[in-house]
Simulated scan of single mutants.
Amino acid sequence: MNNNTEKQNKYIRAKARVAEIKKFYTSLISYAIFITLLGALNYYVNEWRYMWFLWAAFGWGIGLLFQAGKAFQWSPFMGKNWEERKLKEFLEEEEKQDWN
């Protein structure tokens, strides 16, 4: 592979990763603002007799955890670089089949 092409591919992957991290932080800020507002509304409506805003915080929080895992490439089930290893494995299998 051409060295210049390889640098371009690395740049494109890095740019995509930065975009994912930026998207996560934007979501995190939105989460903090809206959950705070929901908590304030909950207090205003029933003074913590039933803290319903926690259901929204919990549900949205789970989604935020998955988004963080994707943005920071944290995958406890598949391990580090699992996807790249699998791609290489499948490409090697394809090459072996092409020779047969």
Results as ranks from 00 to 15, higher is better:
Asp98His: 11
Leu41Gln: 04
Lys70Cys: 02
Ile33Gly: 04
Glu94Tyr: 08
Lys86Trp: 08
Ile29Cys: 09
Trp74Cys: 13
Glu89Val: 08
Leu37Gln: 10
Glu93Lys: 04
Ala57Tyr: 01
Thr5Ile: 12
Glu6Phe: 12
Leu64Glu: 02
Ile62Thr: 05
Phe66Asp: 11
Lys15Trp: 00
Phe66Ile: 08
Asn46Phe: 00
Gln73Phe: 10
Asn9Tyr: 15
Leu28Gly: 02
Ile21Lys: 15
Trp48Thr: 00
Thr26Asn: 12
Leu28Ile: 04
Lys86Glu: 12
Ile62Glu: 02
Asn4Lys: 11
Ala71Tyr: 01
Lys96Asp: 04
Leu87Ile: 12
Lys22Arg: 11
Tyr50Gly: 01
Trp60Ser: 06
Glu20Asp: 14
Arg13Asp: 15
Lys22Cys: 07
Trp55Asp: 13
Tyr31His: 08
Lys80Asn: 06
Arg17Gly: 13
Val45Gln: 07
Phe66Trp: 07
Lys10Asp: 14
Tyr31Val: 03
Glu93His: 02
Val18Arg: 13
Leu65Ile: 10
Leu37Met: 13
Glu94Trp: 08
Ala19Asn: 15
Met51Val: 07
Trp82Leu: 01
Leu38Glu: 09
Lys22Gly: 06
Leu28Asn: 03
Asn81Pro: 12
Lys96Met: 06
Ala56Phe: 05
Ala71Asp: 00
Ala16His: 08
Trp48Cys: 00
Trp82Gly: 06
Met1Thr: 02
Ala71Val: 02
Lys15His: 07
Ser30Lys: 12
Ala56Gly: 06
Gln97Ile: 07
Glu95His: 09
Glu20Met: 13
Leu54Tyr: 06
Leu91Cys: 08
Thr26His: 09
Asn2Asp: 15
Thr26Leu: 14
Phe90Thr: 03
Lys86Pro: 03
Lys22His: 06
Arg13Glu: 15
Tyr31Ser: 04
Ile12Ala: 15
Glu83His: 02
Gln73Asp: 14
Glu94Leu: 07
Glu83Asn: 07
Leu64His: 06
Gly79Pro: 09
Ala68Thr: 04
Asn42Thr: 01
Asn3Ala: 12
Trp99Ile: 15
Ser27Gly: 13
Arg49Lys: 12
Glu94Ser: 03
Glu84Asp: 14
Tyr31Gly: 05
Asn9Asp: 15
Phe34Lys: 13
Lys70Asp: 10
Ile29Trp: 06
Lys22Thr: 12
Asn46Cys: 00
Ala68Ile: 03
Tyr31Ile: 05
Ile12Gln: 14
Lys22Phe: 05
Ile12Asp: 13
Lys10Ile: 14
Gly59Trp: 05
Pro76Lys: 04
Ala56Pro: 01
Leu65Asp: 07
Lys70Phe: 03
Met78Arg: 11
Leu65Lys: 05
